Amino acid sequence: MTTLTRQDINFGQVVADILCEFLEVAIHLILYVREVYPSGIFQKRKKYNVPVQMSCHPELNQYIQDTLHCVKPLIEKNDAEKVVVVIMDKEHHPVERFVFEISQPPLLSIRESKGPLGGSDILLSHVEQLLRAFILKISVCDAILNNNPPGCSFTVLVHTRDVATRNMEKVQVIKDFPWIVADEQEVNMQEPKLIPLKTMTSDILKLWRAVILDRI
C-alpha cells in the first residue's frame, strides 16, 4: 500500500470535484423529494447507476451551479466544514435543514491493483458505491419527515473554518455572486429534531462523518 500526502497530488481538487458533483445531484433530489418546486420541472436521469430527478429549469440550475462553483475552492483548501441546504417557509423561517458535514483525511492510501488506474480503480468504485447509498437515502427521506408547508423556498449555506472566514470577503469566484453572512433566522431553528441520514467513510475521501436532517 502506498501512502501519499495532500501535497503529492492535487488531492484537494480530487475531493472537490467528487463532492461538488455529488452535491449538485443531492440538491436537485432534495428539492424534488421535499416538493420545494413542482415535479413538472424535473426530469429522470441516472447517476451513480441509480435513477435521480434533476431540474430542467435554467435559472434554478444556474443558481445551484454558481453556488457550488463558489464552494469548490473552499473544499479544495479543506476550509469548508458543512454545506447546508435550508428549506424555508413563506416568512423565510427554516423548517428543514439538510446538513452535509465534511472531513478530509491528511493522507491518501492507495493499494496496489492491476487495473488500468492502479489502486485508484478500487477506491473510486468504492466511493461511487457510498455516494449511491447517499442518493438512495435522500430519495426515500420523505417517508420519515412531515410535509413542508406550501410556498417554500431554499438557500445553500456554507460553514467555514475561522481562517477561511477572515479571507472570504477578498474572494469572489463569480462576478456579482459574492459571499454574504447568513441571517440568524436562516441559521437557527427552534427546538430542532435531529435525524441521522447516512455516514460515509472511505480510504480516499472521509468526506461525510454524518449527514443529518434537522426538523422542527
Rank of each mutant, 00 (worst) to 15 (best):
K137L: 05
K137H: 05
I138F: 06
I138Y: 03
S139P: 08
S139G: 12
S139K: 15
S139L: 13
S139N: 15
V140L: 11
V140I: 15
C141T: 04
C141E: 10
D142S: 15
D142N: 14
D142V: 14
A143Q: 15
A143G: 07
A143C: 11
I144P: 01
I144N: 09
L145Q: 01
L145C: 11
L145E: 01
N146K: 14
N147M: 09
N147C: 09
N148G: 12
N148R: 12
N148F: 06
P149L: 06
P149K: 14
P150C: 07
P150Y: 06
G151S: 10
G151P: 05
G151W: 07
C152V: 07
S153L: 05
S153A: 08
F154E: 02
F154L: 05
T155A: 10
T155V: 15
T155W: 03
T155H: 07
L157M: 13
H159I: 12
H159F: 10
H159M: 13
T160K: 07
T160D: 03
T160E: 04
T160F: 01
T160M: 15
R161K: 12
D162V: 09
D162S: 14
V163Q: 09
A164M: 04
A164C: 01
R166G: 02
M168G: 00
M168C: 02
E169C: 02
E169F: 01
V171E: 13
V171A: 11
Q172E: 13
V173C: 05
V173F: 07
V173S: 01
I174R: 08
I174F: 00
K175C: 04
K175M: 03
D176A: 10
D176R: 12
D176L: 06
F177I: 01
P178Q: 10
W179Y: 09
W179I: 01
W179R: 00
I180L: 13
I180P: 03
V181W: 04
V181A: 12
V181F: 03
V181R: 12
V181L: 14
A182Y: 04
A182D: 03
A182T: 02
A182C: 08
D183P: 03
D183R: 15
E184M: 08
E184G: 02
E184H: 09
E186H: 12
E186M: 13
E186R: 06
V187H: 07
V187T: 12
Q190C: 10
Q190G: 06
E191R: 14
E191C: 09
P192F: 09
P192K: 13
K193T: 13
L194A: 11
I195S: 06
P196H: 07
P196K: 13
L197Q: 05
K198Y: 15
K198P: 02
K198W: 15
K198C: 15
